[in-house]
C-alpha cells in the first residue's frame, strides 16, 4: 500500500464544457482530514468530483488519490475509496441484503458484520425493498454501504441535501466517528455550510469553476470578518481589503479578508465574525463589489 500525505491532490485541473469551465483548479485534501467543498449550485463541485472519480475525462491537469494516479491506478484506488451521491443509485427492487451481496464481491475488504451493524444502527430493514424507503433511509443505506469496506477516502457529493436536520446531524456524527483513527479522509461537497461548519477541518470555496479559497476552516473564519459602517465610510476603506460590500437602508456591511489588519486600520468600525455562509455569499458577489 502506498504512503501518502494528501488523500486528494488536484493540480491545475481544467474541464471544459460548452457553457461551463472548471478553470485550472488546484487544492489538496490532507490525510485524516474532513474537507468541506463549498459553492453555490452550478459552481463546479460536482464537475470536480466527477473529474477526480474519472467519471468524466479532464482536459488538463493532474489528479492523485491516495498517492496514486486517478486514471492509471483507477481500480486500485476505487477499492480503497467510497462515494456517496446526492441520490441513491440503487434499483428500487433491491433490498439492503441484495446490496451486500453485490458489494461484497467488488470490495476485498467488505465486512458484512460492519454493514449489519450500520443497518441496525440506522434501523434499516434488511428485507424491505429500497423503493419503499424514505429519502433519509435511502441516504443512510448509501452511507452504510460506503462505510462497510474500510474505505480510506470518502467522497460525498451533496450527500446531506434534502435531509431533515435530525438525520443530517446523525449522519455527520457517524462521519466524525469514522474519521477517529486519523487514517481516513473525507471530501464533502455541500452548499449547506452549517453542516461543514460543524465537522470540517478544512474548506475549499469554488465559484464559477474557480477556486476562491482553500485552507484550514478556523483560519479562514478567523481572517474574514464583516465590517459594519455607514455608507459614507465605504469610500475610506481600502479597496484591497474588501471582498464585497452589502448595502442596506441602515448602512453597509463590508467583508474584509484580513480581520486583524482591518481592525487596526478602521478602529471606529465594528467587525463581526463571519460564518462560512457569509464568506460564500460575499465572495460570490466579489465582481459586483457592491450589492444589496
Amino acid at each position: 500500500m502506498t504512503e501518502y500525505e494528501n488523500a486528494i491532490e488536484i493540480k491545475g485541473v481544467t474541464k471544459r464544457y460548452d457553457d461551463f469551465t472548471l478553470d485550472n483548479i488546484s487544492f489538496d485534501v490532507p490525510k485524516g482530514c474532513i474537507m468541506g467543498f463549498i459553492g453555490q449550485n452550478g459552481a463546479g463541485k460536482t464537475t470536480t468530483i466527477r473529474s477526480l472519480l474519472h467519471i468524466t475525462d479532464i482536459n488538463s491537469g493532474e489528479i492523485r488519490l491516495l498517492g496514486l494516479d486517478h486514471i492509471k491506478d483507477e481500480t486500485a484506488i476505487k477499492k480503497r475509496i467510497a462515494v456517496v451521491f446526492d441520490e441513491l443509485p440503487f434499483h428500487d427492487m433491491f433490498n439492503a441484503r441484495d446490496m451486500a451481496r453485490i458489494f461484497e464481491g467488488m470490495y476485498p475488504e467488505w465486512d458484512n458484520s460492519i454493514y449489519t451493524q450500520y443497518l441496525e444502527r440506522f434501523q434499516l430493514p434488511a428485507k424491505k425493498k429500497i423503493g419503499q424507503f424514505s429519502k433519509g433511509m435511502k441516504m443512510k443505506l448509501q452511507i452504510a454501504c460506503a462505510l462497510s469496506h474500510n474505505a480510506e477516502l470518502l467522497v460525498m457529493d451533496e450527500a446531506t441535501t434534502g435531509l431533515d436536520p435530525v438525520v443530517r446531524d446523525e449522519i455527520l456524527h457517524i462521519f466524525q466517528e469514522y474519521l477517529q483513527n486519523g487514517e481516513r479522509s473525507v471530501l464533502m461537497s455541500s452548499h449547506i455550510t452549517s453542516d461543514l461548519e460543524k465537522i470540517a477541518d478544512m474548506v475549499t470555496f469554488i465559484d464559477r469553476g474557480k477556486i476562491l479559497l482553500s485552507g484550514c476552516k478556523d483560519d479562514i473564519l478567523e481572517k474574514h470578518g464583516i465590517l459594519k459602517c455607514d455608507k459614507e465610510k465605504i469610500a475610506e476603506i481600502d479597496a484591497a481589503d474588501i471582498v464585497s460590500i452589502r448595502t442596506n437602508n441602515f448602512g453597509a456591511e463590508v467583508m474584509v479578508h484580513d480581520c486583524e489588519n482591518a481592525s487596526c486600520k478602521y478602529r471606529d468600525c465594528v467587525i463581526d465574525p463571519a460564518s462560512l455562509d457569509d464568506i460564500m455569499l460575499y465572495y460570490v458577489y466579489r465582481d459586483k463589489k457592491e450589492w444589496s
Partner: peptide, 18 residues
C-alpha cells in the same frame, strides 16, 4: 435503461470494476 434511470450507470465508475 433502468441503470441509467437510477444513476447506477454513472455510479459504476466509482466502483472498483473495469
Amino acid at each position: 435503461s433502468m441503470d441509467v434511470k437510477t444513476g447506477w450507470a454513472r455510479t459504476v465508475y466509482a466502483l472498483p470494476v473495469t
